[in-house]
Design a protein around this nucleic acid. Structure first.
Ligand code: MN
Ligand code: MN
Ligand code: MN
Ligand code: MN
Lengths: 218, 218
DNA sequence: AATAAAGTTTAGACTTGTCTAAAAAATTAT
DNA sequence: ATAATTTTTTAGACAAGTCTAAACTTTATT
């Protein structure tokens, strides 16, 4: 059994491993958890004792198979709860994260399996992130950042890179939601901004936005 | 904001006040939380500083208005989650308590209000206990223990006094669930056991059972 | 290769919540 | 009214998790 703090560390390491392969360093974990490197050092020793991470002093940390499975299960719970909040409780996609941060620590196998069933076994959360299955496997869809599309290419919005509520609310305001079809009309060399067509409306999108929106090409 | 531990103490005091009016003593709280009297003393000081309880050394403790409201809100969350688990996730009434003990500490006004709406604003939890409203008010129904009924009297099962899973599973086995009509046929002087009619079936009920089942007379 | 800078760990302290053992107060029995 | 018993509080310790400051390793710079 893992404490809430331990679970949060495992999840942070899991997410860091998914973006930067190789041993995860103390400072990166500290930053992602808004804590201090010394606290991370202490906790890593505990996690190492519990055999969920491999650890060599000064050499960073990697999840063991057990660690990966444990972390994936927390992510699974987080994302299922996010789907629940949006689908059943009328939360908008920018409101769910903080509540899911709490709900992901609830311990009950039956709860999460029944929730999964209630929601119709969803494969992705409201931000387009894949939901790991009971064994921790995720089946990632083939997506790329809008910024990588070339002129005349089209695709469908399938996810966000930044899921801060500011960004999500901005997308709402622009009418950009998951599932919408997007066509790149023009790419401005000067500032890498895009002119796109969405819902038959033409709009201009800054490079910063285009670098935080995932598209499945079509 | 209250910690999980503080919330559990508040809830325990709230429940104790509802059965035995007057200042609640340290040992009673310790017993109901399965902790030690010394721990209770420590915590009571903190709760007193936070102005949710009134406390005079050696004289027991009472909830302030703020304390009552806070505690009632935790009970509200506990019972709404229990309804959710039974109605939406197919839990049986003997499985819900432990999970609700965790869920009751989730902090989100919107979450609990939307949950309330999803469930159709239920007034009672799966064990027949009333669900406090947003202001902490409960509207208790008029109920009495089955053991207090006289021969030939009839009523409807509306709640349980003991909600341990052993007792609840026992009731399931006997076919006794909330809403069922019961008629007292005979009362045995020797051991205070009852002969009752339920679903047109005659069965014998020990005094211990009859003292843990609430009835609304009809 | 030596030094500076950056990253990491340790030492020691603090908070929350818990415990045991001992002291103090309140209650009950003689 | 005094003594015995029960209840409650205090004192001191401990585990988890965090922090700051200092020491230590590794990496980068000269
Ligand atoms: Mn999230
Ligand atoms: Mn998400
Ligand atoms: Mn309960
Ligand atoms: Mn209940």
């Amino acid at each position: 059994m893992f404490s809430q703090a331990e679970e949060n560390y495992l999840k942070a390491i899991y997410h860091l491993e998914s973006v930067s392969k190789g041993g995860i360093n103390t400072n990166a974990i500290a930053k992602s958890l808004a804590t201090k490197a010394s606290s991370v050092s202490d906790m890593i020793k505990k996690l190492s004792d519990k055999e969920v991470v491999l650890y060599k002093k000064y050499k960073g940390v990697t999840l063991t198979e057990l660690g990966k499975k444990t972390a994936a299960n927390i992510v699974r719970k987080h994302r299922l709860w996010e789907v629940f909040l949006v689908k059943k409780l009328n939360f908008s996609w920018d409101e769910v994260h903080d509540v899911a941060e709490q709900l992901e620590h609830i311990k009950s196998k039956k709860l999460i399996n029944q929730l999964d069933a209630l929601l119709g076994f969803p494969t992705h959360d409201p931000h387009g992130d894949p939901i790991p299955d009971k064994d921790g496997c995720i089946n990632a869809i083939d997506k790329c950042l809008l910024a990588t599309l070339k002129e005349t290419e089209t695709g469908v919005c399938v996810g966000v890179n930044d899921s801060s509520s500011e960004f999500l609310q901005f997308l709402d305001k622009k009418g950009i939601t998951l599932g919408k079809k997007i066509e790149v009309l023009e790419k401005e060399d000067f500032d890498d901004s895009l002119s796109i067509l969405i819902d038959n409306k033409k709009m201009s999108i800054s490079n910063k936005i285009a670098n935080n929106l995932y598209i499945r090409k079509s």
